[in-house]
Design a protein around this nucleic acid. Structure first.
Lengths: 246, 246
DNA sequence: TCATACGCTGTATAACGTACACAGTAATGA
DNA sequence: TCATTACTGTGTACGTTATACAGCGTATGA
């Protein structure tokens, strides 16, 4: 297995800033740069985040950023965490109700910042904000009799669900962001399939298109579909608990 | 909403090649180029896929590729479909057994070609190979009394599960691919968390780390975790069916 | 006071996608 | 048969973007 190490910024994400002994005081800090980068991403999408544009945002020279971040990739890692809001407070109540809201809130902030979907793809969470979400989910599941391993698995499953759901809504409604073009509205998606499909090779799909199963774009943004899939998971979790009780 | 259109290559993916009337016959075809690109991706990862490297692979000049593909993005779209294998054959049996194998096979080919995880992120499937998977899942669910909308939802949920699971395993075991570094092995992930976490802000997570819930890296590659999450979904689906029957 | 370490920046470079122009070639129509 | 036309293959040039490097200024510690 290849040698791997944690990017140096991770320490700074947790406030482990090393204060220098000599020279002029830094006129910026990491937080301000990250905030600027997030602002650019919100405004211009992820492809608008260039070292030069972020530097312009804080009114400094491009190369100055490298005093605070080792590379653009590091900057993106920190952004990916800093852009995450606080999770909903857990009031000690029903796990299912809390996790429903938790997952929905998760999806919602991803929809608000679709560029987050492109980050975080290949790295498990190490930042304070992301981990707080995990912690809260574990807390909500504390009274269920499940072990830590199972609880973590559940939280991960729900996180993933939120992310994929957001990605799908985003692709379908097409609030263009990253480099890749989204397909037109979902109505057109059904049209495209109907146009291109070979009925013999794809019998079921053809039938689905004929029945207008890909009907309206609203259907995907609608809460109904989100709740549908979520309940698939939650029912599964519930089944696991009752099974474990025997 | 912004105007969007299907990339021109999609037609070619379905064999709609327009044969030219004049001039020299092309010495290549799209399929050969895509195969070369996939070969490069398998060997060097997605970041190794450059127009120049793919061209070298087919022993042509870089710019020649643009006779077959409109842009690098188009090439990636076609790759993302062509690299997908055939889904397992459906023998008409039990839906749950089939979908279990289907999802596992889905995860497995993603693990075999981790670079596929980075593609397909923002675009719903339009290629013949990807859609065949969807068709088969719909077929397996045909006898369950569920409508097309529900069946599509289920297939999507399972696809997403497979993708996220593969992404996680890949991140954890760290078969380095894309630009972003994976974190070290999972054992170290637990160590990192333990080192960096503030016990007051993250009580549950701290406890989980102390109980070694992030224990061994094998645990994530292990089938146990995969089956666990999958059964969460399948149990949920089953619950949906019995509910619908009332 | 001076040496040292550090902050800020301008310039230069390297990598990569791709626009463009040109040369060679084969089908078409007279 | 030959000019026309459309199409292929390719070399060159350019634009974008990340970042290596070196120089200059500044505040701290001896």
């Amino acid at each position: 297995m290849a040698e791997r190490r944690l990017p140096p910024v991770v320490a700074r994400m947790w406030g482990r800033e090393t204060t220098p002994r000599h020279g002029p005081r830094p006129s910026l800090d990491l937080a301000r740069i990250v905030a600027a980068a997030i602002h650019v991403a919100d405004r211009d999408g992820l492809e608008g985040v260039k070292m030069s544009s972020v530097a312009a945002e804080v009114a400094m020279a491009t190369m100055s950023l490298y005093r605070y971040v080792g590379s653009k990739d590091e900057l993106l890692i920190v952004m990916a965490d800093a852009a995450v809001p606080e999770p909903p407070a857990y009031d000690g109540g029903n796990w299912r109700a809390y996790l429903t809201g938790w997952t929905r809130a998760n999806r919602d902030f991803l929809l608000g910042r679709p560029w987050l979907l492109a980050l975080n793809q290949h790295t498990p969470p190490t930042g304070p904000r992301s981990l707080r979400w995990l912690d809260r989910a574990l807390a909500a599941l504390a009274g269920t009799g499940l072990g830590y391993g199972e609880r973590i698995n559940i939280a991960v499953a729900l996180t993933n669900y939120a992310a994929r759901q957001a990605a799908m809504v985003h692709a379908m409604t097409g609030t263009a962001t990253a480099g890749s073009e989204a397909i037109a509205g979902l109505t057109e998606y059904g049209d495209i399939l109907g146009e291109v499909l070979d009925p013999e090779g794809y019998p079921e799909l053809t039938a689905a298109v004929r029945e207008n199963a890909f009907g309206s774009a609203d259907q995907w943004i609608d809460d109904a579909d989100f709740t549908f899939g979520l309940n698939l998971l939650l029912d599964g979790i519930q089944a696991l608990m009752t099974r474990g009780r025997d």
